[in-house]
């Protein structure tokens, strides 16, 4: 069963075409890695799915719900971990978790159980009442990651999942991603750490200058050639 359908999507910024008629889909419970050099269009795909980047043409749907027809229902099915944490300086870590819990309709009991488990796993249980400014970058990334891991969603978007995380947290996140996928969540991620992604991704999509140049199962992935040689 297809979770995400990305059909004929074209994105233009000014006169530049960033994505050229991109087509791909994600099966339920699949982990797909978006691979490519800097500027290939990986983050633009993420932003377009999130609705931050306006598309010129094409359709994006999750479980049959079109982004353009019912954006609110569409969004309930996505959770996103950005490359750079964007937290609100008005809210503490715990208040961020509450914001996510309420937005995704988690009960108080569910929220507290998950927060307890995840904060202990990422070793930030003593930082719950801290504001983002008093947290290190790695800790802010952990807070942002936990926020996205709290709800049960159909699709999880992860931009550079291991950026800013220490070795233990990265290993834990990798396991959590695998568990999420086993429970039916489809995962779309971008990463430059190809060795690591190769360990758990099912398939890959390679992008070059806004065009899909290759698709396949992860174990068949050979290598990423230098940007200048393509």
């Amino acid at each position: 069963m297809e979770t995400l359908k990305f059909e004929g999507v074209r994105v233009e910024i000014g006169k530049n075409t960033i994505l050229q008629d991109i087509d791909f889909s994600l099966e339920q419970g699949n982990i797909v890695a978006l691979i490519g050099h800097n500027g290939a269009g990986k983050s633009t795909i993420m932003k377009t799915i999130m609705g931050w980047q306006e598309k010129k043409q094409g359709n994006i749907s999750i479980n049959g719900i079109n982004q353009d027809d019912s954006f609110l229902t569409y969004k309930k099915q996505i959770a996103y971990i950005p490359e750079e944490p964007f937290l609100l300086s008005e809210l503490t870590a715990m208040q961020h978790f509450q914001l996510y819990g309420q937005s995704y309709g988690l009960s108080e009991q569910q929220l507290n159980q998950r927060v307890e488990h995840l904060t202990r796993l990422f070793e930030i249980e003593d930082k719950l009442n801290e504001y983002p400014e008093s947290l290190s970058k790695g800790m802010r990334q952990k807070v942002q990651t936990i926020c996205a891991l709290l709800p049960d969603v159909a699709l999880m978007l992860i931009d550079e999942p291991f950026m800013g995380l220490d070795v233990h947290a990265a290993a834990d996140l990798q396991q959590l991603i695998i568990d999420k996928a086993k429970n039916g969540t489809s995962i779309l991620l971008t990463s430059h750490q190809l060795d690591r992604v190769g360990e758990f991704a099912d398939s890959y999509i390679m992008l070059h200058k806004g065009v899909i140049t290759e698709k396949g199962i992860m174990k068949d992935f050979a290598e990423l050639t230098r940007r200048s040689t393509e």
Binding site: T92, Q95, E108, E130
Partner: peptide
């Protein structure tokens, strides 16, 4: 700094 009363769903959004 304290967490919001979770059942009062409007409080967090009022703050925002």
């Amino acid at each position: 700094r304290k967490p919001f009363p979770y059942h009062r769903d409007k409080m967090i959004f009022r703050k925002l």
